[in-house]
Write a protein that binds this DNA or RNA. Structure first.
Lengths: 344, 344
DNA sequence: TTGTAAGCGTTATCAT
DNA sequence: ATGATAACGCTTACAA
């Protein structure tokens, strides 16, 4: 039943009684071939079960029909939403999307990048472990379009798409202060993650500008941005002396916030009365939490879409100029900070 | 700065003053080339920034170094966990993994499948919209290894890896009955989804076997397996007259359960005292919920790993026989069904 | 409108 | 140990 090897244009040509070139024309410029022969060729293709060999096409064409996205953390739905946005854009341009996951490890990232180069992908979208990494610059120098997603490239050597993380941190903490909190925890880490640094930075900035006491902003570092670390931060929070204990927390992403929320509810705290919580990203699960989570929303799919637009521009437009797109994050207030939420 | 085209083996050969074949040997059988020339070639490669062209390699080799997974719903973390398992196995065999998402639409699925064939992937893993679909059988008939994941192929025409969904439904409902519930809701849909049918089937079976009254098992159909539909099912549940209202619910997946949980807590119900909830899949967010969710665990990564093993066997072992691997699901009891959970 | 032939970058076979 | 050469399946001039 199984065939030795799959039929090639040559086989189709033989079967249809035409030449190689004609078969190719049927596929690539059907208008130049007469309806009669075209139909004959198409029938032959169907009969033989011909499937075009993309490698051969690509070898000849010199260009592939694929984009790639190297995500930072497969376990964070945020990145999958970004990927979904990219995929839509890719689909619109009739491109395939290759998705890789570095899992925060620079080594894996490099391995993936290497393979993608071998595959001659049209462009690479990446949320890098380190935007300053040598291997990233190397790729860009080769002329392969690279776009940094969710992070601003430091050198301006590539395009980037991100939200203003500093602003995000600001509006989160500003919101908490508006709600009457005067002792706030900021939770996140490690600080080697740029997004974390900037979100914390924004939080500190606005805290100072609003004239709050520096000591009343407590930083609780975490080793990762996970639910488990959020729970652990909650325990540390609970361990603080009541007088100094923050009445609100700003978490650098939603996974941390979800973990904190779980720990707090488990400990019997009323949310938001005894502890208010703001997350970051606004993933689906934020709104789906038992106490819906206030979060700083990133336009996740939009981010991906815009990034895809930039790679494609770089890939096809000779006049392309690198640009850093910045989206404005938006606070989505829910029950975890306000008893009667403005949004749900 | 940017180079016209990237250097080929030919360029490397010229630069190193050796022949084409020698360069190829350095890459593929380094042991046959003398250390001196090998080093010379390697230096030339580094200087020129040579990157092997995978299309050409593949065209020549006739086979690609990629596996593909077509997932059913990108918005459900369950599938990403399966994908992670596949990826690990792929990595072990030095293969790349191409991830696609059909989003439950048969049309998208077919488009992806088509592209994957053109790419000549080594094998396809898929959680299909419809395991009986024509296009799936067509691919298998072409001799491309296809493995059905999280669903049993109907015809035995391909390998499959799944958990016993009927059993899963059984242990979920058995657990609820053990906890003393005599009115239970089963929530899920649409019934066109095989997993749903079987989980419900198991629920009904065990309900009857335990001698419970048929009318006390209420089926609440949903249009999708999402958090939003879970919430909506919760509202319908709340609308039932108190006498007939179930005191426990078995949801066909965790997203539904999470939605139901949210709705119930929002409505002021105490969990599990006033409503006990069991989900299915045991995704990370089940354990992370405010009230940790009891769930029927699927060995998500294991599923992926095993499936990858089967495709690889089919791809490489001439004596390969199709097989249907079935894992045994396991109940993970948490606070959403037991006041003092056995596990956390 | 259709056929012929060259070439994309690699690998493998056969000489040397 | 190294070099020359054919072949993989396709696209695209160019010729007929």
């Amino acid at each position: 039943m199984a065939i030795g090897r799959s039929p090639s244009v040559k086989d189709v040509a033989a079967s249809a009684g035409v030449s190689l070139g004609t078969v190719s024309n049927v596929m690539n410029r059907p208008e130049v071939v007469s309806p009669a022969t075209r139909e004959r060729v198409e029938r032959a293709m169907a009969e033989l079960g011909f499937v075009r060999n993309e490698s051969a096409r690509q070898l000849r064409a010199g260009t592939s029909r694929t984009l790639a996205y190297v995500m930072l953390e497969g376990s964070n739905p945020f990145f999958h939403d970004v990927a979904a946005g990219i995929e839509m854009a890719a689909e619109d341009s009739d491109l395939s999307l290759f998705i890789c996951n570095s899992n925060g490890r620079s080594g894996r990232e490099e391995v993936h990048l290497d393979r993608l180069m071998q595959q001659r992908v049209q462009g690479i979208l990446i949320t890098p472990v380190d935007p300053g990494a040598r291997h990233l610059a190397d790729i860009a120098r080769r002329g392969i379009p690279v776009v940094i997603v969710d992070r601003v490239g430091e050198s301006g050597a590539f395009c980037s798409v991100a939200v203003d993380d500093v602003l995000g941190g600001r509006i989160a903490v500003e919101h908490l202060v508006e709600q009457g909190h005067s002792r706030v925890a900021v939770i996140g880490g490690p600080e080697s993650i740029g997004q974390v640094r900037e979100r914390l930075e924004g939080a500190r900035q606005v805290w100072a500008e609003l004239g709050m006491k520096p000591d009343d902003l407590t930083y609780l570092p975490t080793a990762e941005m996970t639910v488990a670390e959020g729970r652990s931060a909650g325990e540390r929070l609970a361990g603080l002396p009541a007088r100094r204990r923050p009445t609100a927390a700003f978490c650098a992403n939603d996974l941390l916030a979800l973990g904190l929320l779980q720990q707090a509810i488990g400990a019997g705290l009323r949310i938001p009365e005894e502890l208010a919580i703001v997350g970051f990203d606004d993933i689906e699960f934020a709104a789906a939490a038992a106490v819906p989570l206030t979060s700083v929303r990133q336009p996740r799919q939009e981010l991906g879409r815009a990034a895809a637009g930039l790679v494609l521009d770089e890939a096809t437009n000779p006049a392309h100029e690198h640009q850093q797109l910045t989206f404005v994050p938006e606070l989505v207030a829910r029950a975890s900070t306000v008893a009667r939420p403005r949004a749900y």
